[in-house]
Amino acid sequence: MSIQHFRVALIPFFAAFCLPVFAHPETLVKVKDAEDQLGARVGYIELDLNSGKILESFRPEERFPMMSTFKVLLCGAVLSRVDAGQEQLGRRIHYSQNDLVEYSPVTEKHLTDGMTVRELCSAAITMSDNTAANLLLTTIGGPKELTAFLHNMGDHVTRLDRWEPELNEAIPNDERDTTMPAAMATTLRKLLTGELLTLASRQQLIDWMEADKVAGPLLRSALPAGWFIADKSGAGERGSRGIIAALGPDGKPSRIVVIYTTGSQATMDERNRQIAEIGASLIKHW
């Protein structure tokens, strides 16, 4: 067993022997301040990774656009098919120029040779490549099948209805392509620590998230040296922004954090800054 596999296998073990965790309302004060600064709703939840206990939450059962955070769930569904012998990570998928959609920095470079399922998941999570996500959605049967996968996990809230990039439209009061912070946090925890996926697939999923290259201005910008984070960000229309993450000190994750916002007129930089400040408060009061 590799060191990384050992780390993920012992996530519940280490967490069980940690000192009790206590909620700190100071972080919620910052979440509410972010709402004021952005002029928009902000949803927040913080779960203990081992027990699933909610440590703090704000608007945990209000719907927010998922945006690209759905790509972690998508690759979880792909990995479940791999575990069941219905898919192979090494299978190569070929596609054409007509398949390319807006923001496809990886797939646009491989029109000639195609990409493997493993490479597509890596591109979808680490670079948020939209064509990679659409190609992977095709392998599982489309958005409705991802929703069905989530329902089978016990998540009857999260739903995907459309493809990239239309799913980022974020129309107010439109339930399409949305989740709730509580539902997303619980589902992410199941994917990373539950028995739904094999140990190898859980490790692969967290490795992809740990290698995320496009979430630097968010929670990662607030992390002290030595902290662990595996995350996936999302951005959408109407001032929408979000991030889902597993993080913790001492090089291992111990909490799940989900943050979503929508309806702001603020710039992307300002949305990023507010999420980073929430992260800084979380870490300060850990």
Rank of each mutant, 00 (worst) to 15 (best):
A123L: 03
P105L: 06
P249K: 13
N134P: 00
S57K: 12
E270N: 08
L120F: 04
I206V: 14
T262P: 01
F6G: 06
A123C: 08
Q203C: 02
A9M: 14
F149A: 08
H156G: 15
S2A: 08
G248C: 02
L247A: 05
N168F: 03
R255Y: 02
L191S: 04
P143Y: 03
Y103I: 04
E210D: 09
F6Q: 09
F64T: 01
I3K: 14
D36L: 15
L49M: 15
G114S: 05
L136C: 04
P60Y: 09
D36G: 15
H285N: 14
A246Q: 05
S233H: 01
S254G: 13
A235F: 02
V29A: 14
I93F: 06
E164Y: 05
L55K: 08
V117Y: 03
S128G: 03
I206Q: 12
P181F: 00
T261G: 03
K232H: 00
G216I: 06
E46L: 09
L247Y: 03
T187Y: 03
K284D: 14
R7Q: 14
Y260N: 01
V157R: 12
T147C: 09
Q86S: 15
T27Y: 02
M184D: 00
A185V: 06
H151V: 12
A15R: 02
T112C: 10
L219K: 04
L199K: 11
S104W: 01
E270M: 13
V78H: 03
N98A: 14
P165K: 07
M180H: 14
H156S: 11
G85F: 06
G216A: 11
A77M: 11
L136D: 00
L150V: 12
A230Y: 03
T158G: 05
A235D: 02
D212L: 02
F228Q: 06
G226V: 04
T138N: 15
P143F: 03
P253K: 08
F64D: 00
R271Y: 03
V21W: 05
A40C: 08
Q265R: 13
S80K: 14
G43C: 04
I206L: 15
E145G: 15
D250I: 09
D129N: 01
P105Q: 06
E119I: 01
M268W: 09
I256A: 05
K109E: 14
I259Y: 04
A185K: 00
L219T: 03
L74V: 08
L196T: 15
H285Q: 10
I256N: 01
S201W: 03
Q37F: 14
S221L: 10
E87S: 06
E195H: 14
P165L: 08
D174I: 03
R202V: 09
K53Y: 13
K252P: 05
S281N: 12
H285V: 09
S221H: 12
G251W: 07
